[in-house]
Design a protein around this nucleic acid. Sequence first.
DNA 1: GGTTTGTCACCTAGGTGTAAAAAT
DNA 2: ATTTTTACACCTAGGTGACAAACC
Lengths: 246, 246
Amino acid sequence: MCVIILLAAIRRMFPSVRVKVRNLEPCQQYYIAMDVMPVDSKRYRYVYHSSQWMVAGNTDHSCISPRLYVHPDSPCTGETWMRQVISFDRVKLTNNEMDDKGHIILQSMHKYKPRVHVIRHDPRMDLSQIRSLPAEGVHSFSFLETEFTTVTAYQNQQITKLKIDRNPFAKGFRDPGRNRPLGSLPPLYSSHFLPDLAEASGPCCLYRYSLPLSSQLVSRHPKLAEDTSDSLLRQFPWQLTANHCL
Amino acid sequence: MCVIILLAAIRRMFPSVRVKVRNLEPCQQYYIAMDVMPVDSKRYRYVYHSSQWMVAGNTDHSCISPRLYVHPDSPCTGETWMRQVISFDRVKLTNNEMDDKGHIILQSMHKYKPRVHVIRHDPRMDLSQIRSLPAEGVHSFSFLETEFTTVTAYQNQQITKLKIDRNPFAKGFRDPGRNRPLGSLPPLYSSHFLPDLAEASGPCCLYRYSLPLSSQLVSRHPKLAEDTSDSLLRQFPWQLTANHCL
DNA sequence: GGTTTGTCACCTAGGTGTAAAAAT
DNA sequence: ATTTTTACACCTAGGTGACAAACC
C-alpha cells in the first residue's frame, strides 16, 4: 500500500501590493488582477561581504506565462474600486513549478516586478474563471520601486528584522523590548508617474499607495525612516521567501 | 474621557444550508443568495417537561425586510454552480437589530425558514452590491425540513450534544471517549420536490442536498440515525443560537 | 559550498459551548 | 422566572521565521 502526498508550502507576499485607482468609469464593471514578471533573465546570488546581489547565471523565462491573481472583490464597479485601497495581501507565491492551486510560480534567486491590471468587464465575455489577460480592455501598471529578489532563506539580517517587526504573524520573534506592534506600513500617496501610466490618461489611472518595500520608498518616507530596521533597509534590495515542499 | 464600543457577538448558522442546483443555462451568469423568512408571527417558549415549543405571544414581522446573503462565489456561470455543492457555511446571524455589518437579523424564540435564490445576472444591471432581490429573473426555493427555532441558550441537551459532536469548533466539549470527529453531515440527495420547485421546471431547478437539521431529515437518513444524539433529535425541533453584545 | 526542504513553536484570526452575571 | 449578555478556555485554520536535515 502506497499513498503519495504532494504538499506545497506556499508563502504570502509581504508586504503586500496595495494600490489605489483613479479615473475609472463609475458604473462600468472591472476586474482587477495582479501578476509578477521577471525583470531579466539572470540568476543572482547575494555576496555578503559587499552586501550586493551579483549575477550568477542565466535563465530562460520565455516559455512560461505568468499566473494571474484576480482580486477577490472582482468584478466590481469603478466607483467601488476607487473608494478603497486595493490590497493584494492574499497573493501566494511558490517555487513549485507543478503547483496546481493557481498560486504564482517564481524561481528563487531571480528578480521580479509585480504588475497590476485593470480589466474592463465585457458582458459578452465570461471572465468569472479568468486565468489570463484578455486581448482588449486591459490597462497594466508596474512600479520600479516594487522590484524584488526571491529567496528561500533570508540573505541579510536587516530584511529579517524588518519582516519580524512588521508582519503580525511573526510577532513571536520580536525583541522582548520591542514587541509592541509597529502597525501596517503607512499608506504612501505618490504622484510619481511611471512609463506605463501614460497610456492610462483616458479610461483609468493608477497611483501607488503602499507597496512592497524598496530602498527608495523607505528612504523617502519620513515616518518609516524613523525605524532602525527600515532605515537600514535603504542599502538593501527587497527580498521575498518562496518555498515548496514535496 | 469616554469611549463607546459597540460589539456584536455574531454566530454562524450550523449546520449550514447546502444545496445543489440543476437545469441552469451553462453559459449564463447567476448570483445565488440566501435569506431567512419568519414562518409565522408567533413568539415561542420551550416547555421542558413536555419537550415542546408552545406559542407564547405575537410579533409583527411585517415592517422588516430580511437581509440578503449573497454567496461569495457570485457571480458565476450556471455550469460552475451546477458542478459543486453550494454551501452557505459563512452565513452569520445576529439578534442585534442595529447590526451594520450586513448579517442576517433574527429575533430570538421565533421560527424561521431559510430560502435560496437563484438570480439570473442581467448585464444591464449592476448586481455587484446587491442587497435585495431584483424584481425579475429570480427563482426562490425553501424546504419545510429546514425550519428552525432561534434561541440564545440551548433548551435541551440533545441539541447541545449534536452540535458539539458535529461542529469542529466545539471539539473541546466532546466526551473524552468520543472525541473522534463524526465528520460533517453527509450530503443527502433528495428528489423530494417542494411546492416552490414546480415553477422552476423551466430555467432552473433545485434539489436539497444537505440541510439545517430537522427531525424528518435525520430520521430518514440511516447513517445519521446510528448516532444517539441524532436519533434523539427526532423528537425535537432544530435550534440555533443567535447572540449579541452591547 | 550554497541552497532547499521539512518540522516546529509561536503567533493571528476567529468559531464553539460554558457558566456566571446582568437584564427584563 | 426566564432570557440575554459577557468573559472565557478550548478549539480550527492558517501565516511566521528558526533550525536541522537534505539536496546538489
